[in-house]
Design a protein around this nucleic acid. Structure first.
Length: 264
DNA sequence: ATTGCTTCCTGAGCGC
DNA sequence: TGCGCTCAGGAAGCAA
């Protein structure tokens, strides 16, 4: 399940392969994967590759913007030579040198949005601050949490508050911050809010340094796994470092892991 | 404005 | 061996 570190790992991996490479065509193998018909689009060369939240943003020399969201199980696999189409292939970006990016996605929650003009993508406009930016600070977060009655876990998962966090990293961040995920957002004290900001930046940086977390489907562009699953402290764990059994609850329909002793 | 539930989708795992 | 059930969860859409 790709969150910010996994998406960043893919962007970092793809960049040296596809920057300045000319897109020949994009093929949709499963209807509904791409928002528009790709027929007759002159794409041009890849001029930039970026991440915003969990979105991958590719811009081209001919003012085409390709925005990719991997959903739950989406993968981007880069191949120089193609023998056969991969399993669950939903779309392919073909470059003029015949190398390709395969967009594989078992559960089909992933989507590709192509804009040929300067159309603003609604989802990006509503997105909250980037966790690594200076804008993700105490003043910002405490204002977002103020008077909110939803549990802190739910608010941190909300992309319009902070961009890029999902179920795994929110569990890890709250564990390292010693905050119970069920706590009412508006009732956290100053130290706790500050700690959440600090730990968010630390956990995400560590995860990127280890090429993301592969608990099930996530793969890097060479189809290799990330390694951060080896460093998780609560997510899908049975015991905390302190020896206490990790508790598992459903919150907002999602499995939530926490240590009842370390997280108050 | 905020919150919480439902929906989309497929494969793995499990009990029987 | 296979059937039916549950679970995995990002985000849009909608209802309260």
């Amino acid at each position: 399940m790709p969150e910010l570190p996994e998406v960043q790992t893919i962007v970092n991996g793809l960049e040296p392969y596809i920057l300045q490479k000319e897109i020949d065509r994009i093929i949709e193998y499963r209807q509904g994967t791409i928002n528009t018909s790709c027929q007759g689009i002159a794409f041009g060369r890849v001029s930039s590759l970026d991440r915003r939240g969990k979105y991958i943003i590719i811009k081209t020399s001919k003012a085409v913007t390709i925005i990719i969201h991997l959903g739950m199980t989406g993968k981007l696999i880069y191949k120089k030579q193609v023998k056969k189409i991969s399993d669950h292939c939903r779309a392919v970006i073909v470059f003029t040198d015949q190398s390709r990016i395969f967009f594989d996605d078992v559960r089909t929650f992933g989507k590709i949005h192509i804009f040929t003009h300067n159309v603003t993508f609604k989802a990006l406009g509503k997105m909250g601050v980037e966790p690594f930016s200076d804008d993700f600070n105490y003043v910002y977060l405490s204002d977002k949490l103020k008077n909110r009655k939803a549990p802190i876990k739910n608010v941190l998962m909300n992309q319009s508050v902070v961009a890029g966090l999902g179920n795994i990293y929110v569990s890890e961040i709250l564990h390292r911050s010693h905050v119970d995920p069920r706590r009412i957002s508006g009732k956290l004290n100053k130290e706790e809010v500050g700690e959440i900001i600090t730990q968010t930046k630390i956990v995400l940086r560590e995860a990127i340094a280890h090429n993301g977390t592969s608990v099930s489907d996530f793969r890097r562009i060479e189809d290799k796994k990330g390694e951060f699953q080896n460093f998780l402290r609560v997510y899908q764990k049975d015991y905390c470092n302190c020896g206490t059994a990790i508790q598992r609850n459903k919150m907002a329909g999602r499995s939530t892991y926490f240590c009842p002793r370390c997280q108050k």
